[in-house]
Simulated assay, not measured.
Amino acid sequence: MFEALDETKPLSVRYLVLELENGEFVHLVGYDKDSAALTGLDAFKAFSADHAERRSGALARSAAKIVGNYRMLDNASEAMPA
């Protein structure tokens, strides 16, 4: 995913992946109006194709509102869509 994003450089996409101590991953995604710059990538399609088999639990999506940001996120003044 990150190679594809580095190659295509979509300005409308923000993407962060965290690995928790227990081995689970948290994906934070932000995009401006249209998610196609991310979901249209072949790498995203390949990544999401077998996603259900790799999950440890149910997929949980939720919109988020940034409450505070100290030098963690650039230009992070808007809500990130789920």
Rank of each mutant, 00 (worst) to 15 (best):
A76Q: 01
L41S: 04
N69C: 09
A4K: 00
M80F: 15
L16V: 02
N22Y: 10
R61C: 14
A37S: 13
Y70M: 07
V13F: 06
G40M: 03
L38R: 00
L20P: 01
G68Y: 08
N69I: 09
D50R: 09
K33Q: 13
S35K: 08
G68C: 11
G40E: 08
H51P: 00
L73F: 13
L5P: 04
S12M: 09
S12V: 13
L41P: 00
M1C: 03
R55V: 08
E24C: 10
V26M: 14
G68Q: 10
F44K: 04
V17K: 11
T39M: 07
T39W: 05
P10F: 03
S62R: 12
D74W: 06
A49G: 09
S62A: 05
G57A: 14
L73R: 00
E7N: 12
S35T: 14
D42M: 00
E24H: 15
S12F: 07
D74F: 05
I66V: 12
A36P: 00
E24W: 07
R61V: 11
R55S: 12
L59S: 08
K45T: 12
L5S: 07
R54Y: 04
E19M: 14
M72E: 03
L41T: 08
S77E: 15
A79Q: 08
F25L: 11
M1S: 04
V26I: 12
P81G: 13
A52H: 10
K33H: 10
D42T: 13
G57W: 07
D34S: 14
D32R: 14
I66M: 00
A82N: 11
N69S: 05
R55D: 15
